[in-house]
Amino acid sequence: MASRGWTSRVPSIASRLYFFLIVLQIPLFRVTCRSGMCSTPIQVTSSQLIASEIIPVPVVKALLYPGAVVNGLVKNMTVPSWNDLLDIYNLTTVKEASAVVDLQRLEVLAGSYFSVAGALVGLLKPGRMSMFGTLLIIWGLVKEGILGKPVNVDPAKAVYVYPTMLIALICALSSIKYDVKKAMRPAPARTIAKPLQSSSKSKLK
């Protein structure tokens, strides 16, 4: 019974770990984006949101601020200012940047949207959105870095996948609730209709 209780908590634990990976902006990959170089789904999403003006800027800053605080404390033990967030992430000129960069990486862009949304929604109810987002990002990175010809020959701007991407994938897959009992339960036996007694007697007469 104790093991069953622990396994039932795995999706919620995995969802929380995935949430911290995304919101705290742990580097998962490295690709070029509108703001320059992006290493997290939130950075890719934020550059697109600021450029398209779909969501107000304060909401985008709220997504960026937790990770900015962690990065500031780790790098130089300082807490970044709320007003300097757009400058820190080079988002002040993304509206003038070309949209070709995002069009070349639609899988990474769509996957980043799903990953951020899945991380936020997963706190309330773990689902498949995080898994779809992570798989889309991985497919986009593999498509560009292995299957396709890299656009940039500069090693500093080449596509790169950090080992933390594997942790994100495991958390995304583990956040899905699998009903093992329901899957292993045999299908109900079909009842064979028997002829009515009156009809069988009429046939004998």
Score class of each variant (00 low, 15 high):
Ala189Ile: 09
Phe114Gln: 04
Ala2Val: 15
Lys75Val: 13
Val74Pro: 00
Lys125Gly: 09
Ser35Thr: 13
Val69Cys: 08
Pro41Phe: 08
Leu109Arg: 02
Thr40Ser: 09
Thr92Ile: 08
Val79Asn: 06
Leu49Asp: 04
Ser39Thr: 11
Gln43Tyr: 08
Thr92Gln: 13
Leu147Glu: 05
Gly140His: 04
Val23Asn: 03
Ser98Asn: 09
Pro163Ala: 06
Ile88His: 05
Leu17Ile: 15
Asn152Asp: 06
Leu24Tyr: 08
Thr7Gly: 13
Thr134Arg: 02
Val142Met: 10
Thr164Pro: 02
Leu141Cys: 04
Thr45Pro: 02
Ser202Gly: 10
Ile54Phe: 01
Arg9His: 13
Val121Met: 13
Val70Arg: 09
Gly118Glu: 00
Gly133His: 03
Val79Gln: 05
Ile167Ala: 14
Gly140Tyr: 03
Trp6Asn: 11
Ala168Thr: 00
Arg34Trp: 03
Ile50Pro: 00
Trp6Thr: 13
Ala189Asp: 09
Val121Glu: 10
Ser3Trp: 15
Val60Met: 00
Ile88Lys: 01
Gln43Lys: 10
Leu136Val: 00
Trp82Gly: 06
Thr7Tyr: 14
Lys75Ser: 13
Glu96Ile: 07
Ser3Val: 15
Leu28Met: 08
Lys75Gln: 07
Val23Lys: 00
Arg4Lys: 15
Ser112Val: 04
Leu24Asn: 02
Gln197Phe: 13
Leu64Met: 08
Ser175Glu: 12
Thr134Gln: 10
Glu144Asp: 15
Asp179Val: 00
Pro27Cys: 09
Pro80Tyr: 02
Thr92Gly: 14
Tyr178Thr: 13
Ile146Gln: 05
Ala99Trp: 03
Thr45Val: 14
Leu63Val: 05
Val159His: 01
Leu17Cys: 15
Leu64Val: 10
Cys171Ala: 13
Ala183Pro: 03
Gln48Asn: 11
Val69Glu: 04
Ala68Val: 02
Met184Glu: 10
Leu63Thr: 07
Lys181Ser: 12
Leu136Ile: 03
Leu28Gly: 02
Pro126Ile: 12
Ser174Tyr: 07
Gly127Ser: 14
